[in-house]
Each structure stands twice: as structure tokens, then as C-alpha cells.
Amino acid sequence: MSNLESDPARFTATLDDREDHAPGDEPQEAAGHWVLNANIGLGFSVVLTVAAFALVIWPIVYGPAVAVALVVLAIAQMGVHLVFFLHITTGPDNTNNVLALAFGILVVFLMVVGSIWIMDHLSHNMMPMDQTMQMQR
């Protein structure tokens, strides 16, 4: 009872090498675009990394704020890597890539923040483990 037919021209399961890429992702294009991205990415990364180390070595910033500044710099550098090295925003299927990334970040966020929050409350409410051990003796 089926008429599961389609126009064979639309079906492109057999691809030659020329077709094996999506539009906007031409493998044979000049390398310049990639090299340029690599250079920009490296430039940003070097600046951000040096800034992070400098913050620790020299007292540039108000002491208690250093940790926050470091985290900000790290997140910025991760963004630089994602954009310039991993190309997640410019790929032909970037919507799905970015959605998957967002999902991953959500999970990581839940894991890390959730664990810290929960364990912080636990250690606040519970007797420290070494005291528990002493009671057992």
C-alpha cells in the first residue's frame, strides 16, 4: 500500500569527492581563510593568557577580585577557541552545533554549580569527617 518513492535526483547518498561537503565549506578553497582564523585566534589567546598570568604575578588588580577576573578571562579564551579554532559559529550546520554546545554547557553548569552548592551545604550542616571518625574510636 505504499508508494514510498521520491525523485531519485533528490537522493544524494552516492557522492563523489566534490560533493562531499556542504555549501560554504568548500574543501578546495584557499587555505588563507583558515590561516587567518588561526592567526586571529592565536593573537587573542596569547593576549588573554598573558593577561591571566600577569594578574597572578603582579598586583595589578584589587586582590579579592583576581579570582573572578581569572574566570572571566578563561571564559573569554574558551569563546575565542570555540569561534576561531573550532569554527562552531561558521560551519554550514552551525545551528545544531551551537545547540549541542549550549546543551553541553548547561550540563556542565548543572554538574559543577550543583555539586558545589550541595556539597557546601552538606559540609556546613554535617560534622567534619575527622570528628566523626574520632567519635567512632
Binding site: 537522493f11 556542504a22 545544531n96
Partner: peptide, 17 residues
Amino acid sequence: PVRGIGMGTTGPAHKRI
């Protein structure tokens, strides 16, 4: 719609993707 990236109604993506 762009073909070969597996979005929408365009059918399976290319192997590379």
C-alpha cells in the same frame, strides 16, 4: 534551504557533516 546539512526537510546530511 541548504541541502546536505541534515536540517529541516532536506534529507540526510553529507557524511562529512
